[in-house]
């Protein structure tokens, strides 16, 4: 099995507080890493470090066997990160947002209406996103998972604001992705109803909490 994420001895300090120290993370192709921990434990920080948005204080991250400083562009071509903010343009409609996102991912959506139906946005496709609810905006952002060719998905709280059918739908998509050898790192407070064959649980507790 090829190692997709290999992070060694990560240490991160934010605002003078040690979030985690000497943390090792390893995920293989087809694997799922479920990061858990209380609010403020550093889950998002860890995900942002793996995605290359933040530099750890110590340690280094390798994706697909390469550190980021060798060829950053190659790195970024293989990962998809969706954070707390959906990255959806509120002035544009759902379909326009999907089409532009597809442009960034270098793909053309064959049937945007079909995609809108799949992610539960049918009937809302020509309303500007600012008139949609938080959950619907989230669905626009997550629709990217249905066409993105990136093998590594890093999702920070993907279930936020989604209803129960939405959460089920998303987990079905996760199962398809990992079934095809894709890799997934996610944080969430609720347990997954889906049981992936290669699930790792990582629970972050601030080292200072034990003092």
């Amino acid at each position: 099995m090829t190692m997709v994420v290999n992070a060694q001895q990560l240490t991160s300090v934010r605002a003078g507080r040690t979030l985690f120290a000497d943390l090792d993370v390893q995920v293989e192709a087809g694997g799922v890493l479920h990061v858990q921990g209380p609010n403020g434990a550093g889950k998002s920080t860890l995900l942002r470090i793996i995605a290359g948005l933040l530099q750890p204080l110590q340690g280094q991250v390798e994706l697909f066997g390469e550190p980021a400083d060798v060829d950053r562009e190659q790195w970024q071509r293989r990962l998809l990160f969706i954070g707390h903010k959906p990255g959806v343009k509120s002035e544009l409609t759902a379909l326009e947002n999907l089409e532009l996102q597809a442009g960034f991912d270098g793909v053309v959506i064959d049937d945007p209406w079909q995609l809108a139906e799949t992610v539960g946005l049918l009937g809302l496709e020509d309303i500007s996103a600012q008139q949609l609810s938080a959950g619907q905006q989230r669905r626009i952002a997550l629709a990217r998972l249905w066409f993105s060719p990136a093998p590594l998905w890093i999702l920070d709280e993907p279930f936020t604001a989604l209803d129960q059918p939405g959460i089920e739908l998303l987990q079905q998509r996760f199962a398809e992705h990992t079934g095809h050898g894709g890799t997934l790192i996610l944080t969430s407070h609720q347990p997954l109803s889906w049981q992936p064959p290669q699930l790792q649980q990582l629970i972050i507790r601030s080292p200072e909490a034990h003092d």
Binding site: G103, G106, P149, P151
Partner: peptide, 25 residues
């Protein structure tokens, strides 16, 4: 693997920003 070329990404970015700007004239 995302295969978008530099020009494709830049074009998409400019198209998006123009669209957004024209909605808030």
């Amino acid at each position: 693997m995302i295969k978008a070329s530099t020009w494709q990404v830049v074009k998409t970015l400019m198209r998006r920003d123009l669209k957004v700007a024209l909605r808030r004239r």
